[in-house]
Design a protein around this nucleic acid. Structure first.
Lengths: 99, 99
DNA sequence: ACGCCACTTTCCAAGTTGGAAAGTTTACAC
DNA sequence: GTGTAAACTTTCCAACTTGGAAAGTGGCGT
């Protein structure tokens, strides 16, 4: 029941969503994330940077549909951290009836 | 995949733990929560107040083991909100492999 | 009346979050 | 090679949150 495992870098709502979205696929582009989160470009950029600086995410730029786009992907460290975080959440939810 | 369902009152790590702990039992006392969360009295008091002001939690005082103690319990509104929140978290986790 | 226990409030410093606006980079169009 | 635009990134700033220390409060035992 220890809370130490809840990683604040991952737990913030917007970043949690980014992490969950990325956990099930290889890569997602900036615009897709932005639409999903419904935040400004600056905000998404900063969340990505936060995850990147934690070593959880890697950014790459490559063209798609004529324009250079920013692609994000979890690193293996990030994947582990996300799984750990989700496992911690699941553990907290254990025992809660009807969930 | 909408994030609107993640309730910030519940999502904060310490309050999430309080809510999860309370979700599976009727009532928990102040000291037990304090030990579980490992925070100062002022901090726990404020988190309880936040949950109370949201209508999610009710406080009552009654003696136990010779001393007056503070008991916390989720309201029915709170129980619904917590379930909703946990369901939202679960929904976000859906599709993440191996969790 | 006094002290103590169990909180509650106040005070304050630090960190987080979000958007607007300005800046950067790259890719064309001319 | 200059201008323009897309797609971010950074800077700036206001608002909110969080946490602990310290002071305050109310009930109880003596």
């Amino acid at each position: 029941m220890s809370l130490a495992v809840l990683d604040p870098v991952i737990h913030a709502p917007n970043r949690l969503q980014i992490c969950c979205m990325l956990a099930s696929v290889d890569t997602i582009d900036f615009a897709t994330l932005r639409e999903a989160l419904d935040v400004s470009e600056s905000v998404l950029s900063k969340h990505i940077k936060t995850l990147e600086e934690a070593g959880y995410l890697k950014v790459s730029k490559s063209p798609s549909e004529g324009r250079l786009r920013t692609w994000t992907a979890l690193t293996s460290t990030g994947r582990k951290a996300v799984k750990g975080h989700l496992a911690a959440l699941k553990a907290m939810m254990e025992g809660v009836p009807g969930v």
